[in-house]
Amino acid sequence: MKRREFLKKTAVFISGASVSLSALELVDPKEVLAKNPDLRWGFLVNTYKCVGCGMCVKACKIENEIPWDANVTRTWVERYVITKEGKVLADSPKGARDGFTSKLIDRAAEGKELVPDKEIAQAFFVPKLCNHCTLPACVQVCPVGATYSTKDGVVLVDRKWCIGCGYCIMGCPYGVRFFHPVVHTADKCTFCYHRISKGGNTACAQACPFGARRIGNLRDPNDPVAKAVLTERVGILRDEYGTKPNVYYIGLNKEVH
């Protein structure tokens, strides 16, 4: 090879190699359009309004046929008690299926603990459910395409396609997925897809007497949930995971994860 030829070929090779792989990726117009549809379901939880009655958990279990006594639930309510010394105690007996009726805080292996009223600095309830993330980690890890995100942003599980490997249950940073003891597949909150797609409310939001839970369309500027998300001081859970959750909380504390 001549020197001139060598230099020419090297120049071609280097310029070719410097083109990044992403530059060669074909842009799918469907994918681009899907990023901005006119419907994107979102959820708003007001932790000040929640009284921990657990009617949402009960309604969810009945509506979605989740076994009553099995230790699994699509939504649950956590109680946080922060003492004046700064100690954080949290519990959720049976996912708050029967509400919170006792002052005793369930500390698992350490037994039940009673915090005297005068030692309590802050105490509140936090309802939890699937965040229907924009970038759901659980969907990404599914090896068979059994869990997916719909056009309107709801993360669902295909019960016929799921092989029950449990990757998604491990992959969810929020721990909202579980193994359904009857269907034998992964299971999770569907935002009551069968209700909201017919113009209805979710079972949990409908059962809440205090309006602590609300579902709405985040793309509609006149939707009360979208308005609250845009104008009020809302927080999301575990922002650092980069999953872009779509459940927003009013009155979120740093102790809540």
Binding site: I62, N64, D158, K160, Y193, G200, A203
Partner: peptide, 28 residues
């Protein structure tokens, strides 16, 4: 591969319809 692309939208489209047909219990 459906609306949400390969990473998040790789699924059986008919399942969305199946979920929409899940029976309602609470009527409001």
């Amino acid at each position: 591969v459906h609306d949400q692309g390969y990473t998040f939208g790789f699924h059986r489209l008919g399942n969305e319809q199946e979920w929409k047909q899940f029976p309602e219990k609470y009527k409001g």
